[in-house]
């Protein structure tokens, strides 16, 4: 089970990084969203993986670690805010310059 989660995080990270290194704003934003998933799952997993023991107090004896959940919950909401800000900046740049490259156009890297 741990392997599944770890590899899922790895794949999300790799995909996120690859997309974050693209040349246009939109894939970069998508890449950053994937990285957000990866980071959130990672934080969540740091409390350990437990099936069927939500941290809702009842007659049960074991509960999963509630703290990472609380941290990730706000992280998810905040990451929405962050994505929205990045998107509006990207949008403003594109509408202002009719160009959605992330790199400076003066660069002679041959990518632009």
């Amino acid at each position: 089970m741990e392997l599944l989660v770890a590899s899922a995080i790895g794949i999300l990270t790799a995909a996120g990084l690859y997309l974050a290194m693209r040349l246009r704003t939109f894939p970069v934003i998508i890449g950053m969203s994937l990285l957000t998933y990866a980071v959130n799952i990672f934080l969540f997993a740091s409390g350990g993986l437990t099936v069927g023991a939500p941290p809702i107090l009842s007659d049960a004896t074991t509960y999963t670690d509630p703290l990472p959940q609380a941290l990730v919950l706000t992280a998810i909401v905040i990451s929405f805010g962050m994505t929205a800000v990045v998107v509006v900046i990207a949008l403003g740049a594109y509408l202002g310059a009719n160009d959605d490259h992330v790199n400076d156009l003066d660069e002679k890297e041959g990518q632009a």
Partner: peptide, 10 residues
Amino acid sequence: GGLGAAALTY
């Protein structure tokens, strides 16, 4: 980077 993240998590 992905391998690193996976290894760390595991």
